[in-house]
Amino acid sequence: MSLKFLVVDDSVTMRRIVANSLKNLGYDNIIEAVDGKDALAKLAADPAINFVITDWNMPVFTGLELTKSLRSDEKYAKIPILMVTTRGVKEDIIEALQAKVSNYIIKPFTPQVLKEKIDQILANVQ
């Protein structure tokens, strides 16, 4: 399965770190979005995107709103969504799971955790 990642984060630092980590894991097909609204526009413009990695706390349209919006759209109902966020409170995690994120990573993350979660998601998809 050829993967095209959409990395969504309002922090340019985090976008670069996630993108670098993906490249280190051998995934070169990566595009970036600055918030949830931008992510929706990028997804609409590029049907090849098949994996979303998103932050939660973003202006304009949060990662949770993006997840809910994607899950309510038949076209993206099953697209893998990996939440990478600083929010580590139990209620937040449950809220994210209820919104149907595929998995959840707390910042700061390690490349091992990123790989593990991507592999888990892909194993469930296949």
Binding site: G88, L97, I106, V113
Partner: peptide, 24 residues
Amino acid sequence: GATFDPNASYDKSGDRQDMIDEII
């Protein structure tokens, strides 16, 4: 519309990720 997490912390121990994995 700036949003932020007031509980954000730079914790590299991996304990928080373990706790999240358990919740999931």
